[in-house]
């Protein structure tokens, strides 16, 4: 948790973590609410971006509605540690891959690389994974689909900010 983030920042960022107001002057509405000027708000919001507090300022789409129906987590076993970066980058370079990570493995969970693969159907996602497998020569992989969602929210950092003096 960054110490330089003060109570005023937390208040302003609270307004940005959901949806900004539907208005032609959304930052003016926020400014009015927080008793700031529109310029101050715009400048602060830009500075949060420059400081990388947020990755992106923009629209988050409902992917399902936009046409991506099947999302598979493809996990890869790459026991040779020295090969992981090269293989991970190659796997992640696919157009259908949105995220690629290396994560720790366990004896009973021997996977090292995780790629999220998106397609129209589960069969399409499995097909893409098969192609990826042939490309990098890793045959020990699995494709996991989610079968039930228990919780899905955006993190509300600023409701849960520990110290706010």
């Amino acid at each position: 948790m960054k110490k330089e983030i003060n109570a005023a920042d937390v208040k302003l960022m609270t307004e940005l973590q959901g949806s900004i107001p539907m208005s032609k002057r959304p930052f003016k509405e926020i400014a009015n609410k927080l008793k700031m000027t529109e310029d101050e708000v715009v400048e602060k919001v830009q500075s949060y971006g420059n400081k990388k507090y947020y990755r992106r300022f923009g629209a988050t789409l409902r992917h399902q509605k936009a046409g991506f129906k099947a999302n598979g987590m493809v996990i890869w076993s790459v026991p040779d540690e020295s090969m992981r970066t090269k293989i991970g980058e190659r796997l992640a370079s696919h157009r259908e891959v949105s995220h690629g990570y290396e994560r720790p493995s366990f004896d009973e969970w021997p996977y090292h690389i995780y790629t999220m693969v998106h397609g129209e159907t589960e069969a399409e996602v499995r097909g893409i994974a098969k192609q990826m497998s042939a490309e990098v020569g890793i045959t020990d992989y699995d494709v996991l689909f989610s079968t039930r969602e228990f919780k899905k929210t955006s993190m509300r950092y600023f409701d849960n900010w520990p110290v706010c003096e």
């Binding site: 949806s19 629209a59 988050t60």
Partner: peptide
Amino acid sequence: IIRRLGASF
């Protein structure tokens, strides 16, 4: 189609 319009912290 747009779920949210704001910052992705």
